[in-house]
Design a protein around this nucleic acid. Structure first.
Length: 803
RNA sequence: GCCGAAGUGGCGGAAUGGCAGACGCAUACGACUCAAAAUCGUACGGGAAACCGUGGGGGUUCAAGUCCCCCCUUCGGCACCA
């Protein structure tokens, strides 16, 4: 008998699929479409590791199954190729990032191709192509025209040693990833995108989506919507009022002092009344110089300064209360000021203890001598004249009404989500297509001027002053205003890596269109994405950003669906054999090339899916790989016991239908591991029987095909089955034929398993009882006992309660 | 601290409230072989057994890995968001 040689078989079928364009999606089709999306890779210099193929294989299984079910499947691939690692590598090795990118992509592509994914390679995209980023720039202009892009002073991470601005991911524990030195803040005028304007929609529209629950909750928490009251506290002896935001207006009687952020405008406004202005300024400077790390490290120890010379008036009690500045209040959230209720807020409690401020209990139930009582959702109000005796929720409403009626309070909401800092002072990104004109201000380029090509530069190293490398290119920077024709300067910041990936799923639909990012008809046909799988690490940034851009494009009228992705799932990480995260420095990286070389791509694919629960992290195991290869060898040897037959044999019929049902279902529900084990059981059953007929064999090959496509296509041909496997149909089970006529019903005595009885599926209690009493082994347990209760669940269990 | 997920053999992991450990790995023994590999077969949670076993402690139920309450541990996310 021939031997299973994956090296030859796999190459052969990959070529056939390529030559036939087997997996190309049709642009126009009478078939229903199905759009599957994986997160397109960043082509790093390291090549693939075995973690990459896990999600790709999972959706490849769904893609192949869907095609056999009669869908026009779009399963595309591309490259998210702008970004820092490439740029840093290029600087270090004095190669152009374009060249590095080209090489990396070539390597990734070769590796991916060797795994036999059914990607539509005719739609391959690359975010660094001019024809691609032309439309990234076009979308930016839409954002600008809608007023969603604006410039703002915003601090960047600045490494004084490297003289470079750093991305957040380059800052590790407050230090520079490269030189290890402390990272400081440097304020720059940057482009921001108003994602906060879409915050409500980004939360509310989640309700109708089929996203795994942890993704929804993480996004909701990240956006962080809260409802509360903005209330005005008068500053004594002035017409000024200090507005605070609170989610607990019910506790206002307990507000014994106020705190404002060090940067709050009130200090400048009331400068003349303040007797310790200099002290406040030096505190402000001090906290500005603190790194993020320092600021959070000092959590335990609250600092602050009282603003001398002013007092605020609690609007509900009329009492004069002091005002402090402290960096535990953030200028970026709410109004940058709070009313402090130390009895019921841990932070305020700590501050009050330290500065010896009064603590007034207003919700009963805690022990405020010991600590703040915060877990008080169901508490009753005390020491609060207007609302004494009410519960927290009633009190909130009453106080809110009261202050709104007096015109010194407004119900409002707040978000933790901040606007998106969209500028990078880097070379390897999309140029921002705007010019600054002395008379017209910021002016976007015309569509016909796009793409604004990233110029070739001698040196793309960051500059000493934190400006983008593009800023030194005066020829490129100096231009004319598209509006008035006067002198103008180009924006020299580039876009972040998140830009290209925020809309790539739309370009796949119509990747060569030079009139639009994709044609209207094709968008209408293919959108939305039916199933998007990706890593949990992208939940709060990429996934949210792309939902935001899609909603903007919806508002512009480019897309017709308010959400880009109907369904979102997430895979677990693959760890090294030692159970640690795979990394070069830990020396536990497994390269898929080695596995393909030694065992074949089908074995790798199968093991990637069989390794464990798809949603959980799991350590790699070379022995596990061997086990999967062993199974495929077994499958190959089924040829030896192949017999004729055009229907399932009687003794295998039920098992066949059960298997079809289980595998079909498991492939839809991320349970690839149990789907595969079901097929293993089937093969074991045929081997035990000693034969498999051609009909059973054919069906089995189709079921296994999504997991091991090369082998099954080959066996299909070797068995003389008609055409190619990829042209056939996915089998369907008959529900009636998945049910056994007789079952081994477990018999329990006092809830303990004592044996089984083989009875009819629909047998009655009497039949079960008769069978049980005919079994001497069971009778032993009944000796000298009386039966007090018989529990019989048809088809399930027979339990005798005895005394 | 807050939010989320999870704790089951030597390992990865299965189990609509109804026989815990499917399937695979590792291991041991046997067959084949001059021998080895491959392959095939048998065993494989603990215990001599009665029994005991799904992180720990309570509870609901005829019956709990699964449901409820409390606690411990691990992982992921957020982190002074008022």
């Amino acid at each position: 008998m021939k031997e299973y040689n994956p090296g030859i078989i796999e190459k052969k079928w990959q070529n056939i699929w390529d030559d036939h364009g087997t997996f190309y999606a049709e642009n126009v089709s009478a078939k229903p479409k199905y759009y599957l999306l994986i997160e397109f890779p960043y082509p790093s210099g390291k090549g693939l590791h075995v973690g990459h193929p896990r999600p790709y294989t999972a959706l490849d299984i769904v893609a192949r199954k869907r095609r056999l079910e009669g869908y026009n499947v779009l399963y595309p691939i591309g490259w998210d190729a702008f970004g820092l690692p490439t740029e840093n590598y290029a600087i270090k090795n004095k190669v152009h990032p374009r060249e590095v990118t080209k090489e990396n992509i070539a390597r990734f592509k070769e590796q991916l191709k060797s795994l036999g994914f059914s990607f539509d390679w005719s739609r391959e995209i690359n975010t660094t192509d001019q024809e691609y980023y032309k439309w990234t720039q076009w979308i930016f202009i839409q954002l600008y025209n809608m007023g969603l892009a604006y410039k703002k002073e915003f601090p960047i991470n600045w490494c004084p040693a490297c003289k470079a601005g750093l991305a957040n991911e380059e800052v590790v524990n407050g230090n520079c990833e490269r030189c290890g030195g402390a990272v400081h803040k440097k304020v720059k005028n940057q482009w921001m995108l108003k994602i906060t304007e879409y915050a409500d929609r980004l939360i509310d529209d989640l309700d109708d989506l089929d996203y795994i629950e942890r993704v929804k909750t993480q996004q909701k928490n990240w956006i962080g919507r809260s409802y509360g009251l903005e209330a005005d506290f008068k500053i004594d002896g002035t017409n000024e009022a200090l507005s605070v935001y609170t989610t607990r207006p019910d506790t206002m009687y307990g507000a014994t002092y106020m705190v404002i952020a060090p940067e709050h405008e009130l200090i400048e406004k009331l400068k003349d009344m303040i007797s310790n202005y200099d002290e406040l300024v030096s505190y402000r400077d001090e906290s500005a110089n603190k790194s993020d790390l320092e600021r959070t490290e000092i959590v335990k120890d609250k600092t602050g300064v009282r603003i001398e010379g002013i007092d605020a008036i609690n609007p509900i009690t009329g009492m004069k209360i002091p005002v402090y500045i402290s960096d535990y209040v953030l200028i970026t959230y709410g109004t940058g000021a709070i009313m402090a209720v130390p009895a019921h807020d841990t932070r305020d409690y700590e501050f009050a203890k330290k500065f010896d401020l009064p603590i007034i209990e207003v919700v009963s139930g805690g022990n405020i001598e010991e600590e703040a009582y915060t877990d008080n959702e169901n508490g009753i109000l005390i020491n609060s004249e207007l609302i004494d005796g009410l519960n927290v929720n009633e009190a909130k409403e009453k106080i809110s009404d009261y202050l709104e009626n007096k015109g010194i309070g407004r119900r409002t909401k707040n978000f933790k989500l901040r606007d998106w800092v969209f500028s990078r002072q880097r070379y390897w990104g999309e140029p921002i297509p705007l010019v600054n004109c002395d008379s017209c201000g910021w002016v976007p380029l015309d569509l016909k001027e796009l793409p604004l090509i990233l110029p070739d530069v001698e040196s793309y190293e960051p500059t000493d002053n934190g400006e983008s490398p593009l800023a030194t290119m005066t020829d490129w920077v100096n231009t004319t205003c598209p509006k008035c024709g006067g002198k103008a300067r180009r924006e020299t910041d580039t876009m972040p890596q998140w830009a290209g990936s925020s809309w790539y799923f739309l370009r796949y639909i119509d990747p060569h269109n030079d009139q639009a990012l994709a044609s209207e008809e094709s968008i209408d046909y293919f959108m939305p994405v039916d199933w998007y799988n990706g890593g949990m690490e992208h939940t709060t940034l990429h996934l949210l950003y792309s939902r935001f851009w899609h909603k903007v494009l919806f508002d512009v009228g480019v897309v017709k669906t308010k959400e880009p992705y109907l369904k979102r799932t997430s895979h677990g990480m693959i760890l090294g054999e030692n159970g640690e995260k795979m990394s070069k420095s830990r020396g536990n990286v497994v390269n898929p090339d080695e596995i393909v070389e030694e065992y074949g791509a089908d074995t790798l694919r199968m093991y990637e899916m069989f390794i464990g629960d798809f949603e959980k992290s799991v350590p790699w195991s070379m022995n596990g790989v061997k086990g999967c290869r062993r199974f495929l060898d077994k499958v190959f040897r089924l040829q030896d016991i192949l017999v004729t037959g055009d229907t399932f044999t009687n003794d295998m019929e039920i098992l066949m239908h059960k298997t079809i049902k289980k595998v079909s279902n498991d492939f839809e529900t991320l349970k690839y591991n149990t789907g595969i084990s079901t097929m293993m059981e089937l093969v074991n059953a045929f081997n035990k029987k000693g034969s498999i007929n051609i009909k059973e064999y054919e069906t089995f090959l189709i079921l296994l095909n999504p997991v091991a496509p090369h082998l099954t296509e080959e066996l299909w041909v070797l068995a003389g089955l008609p055409g190619m496997l990829n042209q056939t149909n996915w089998p369907k089970h008959e529900e009636a034929k998945t049910i056994d006529e007789t079952i081994d019903m477990p018999v329990q005595i006092n809830g303990k398993f004592r044996g089984t009885v083989n009875i009819g599926r629909n047998a009655s209690l009497e039949e079960a009882k008769a069978a049980a009493f005919a079994n001497p082994e069971l009778l032993v347990n009944l000796e000298g006992k009386t039966i007090v209760k018989e529990i019989f669940v048809p088809g399930k269990i027979f339990n005798l309660v005895v005394k």
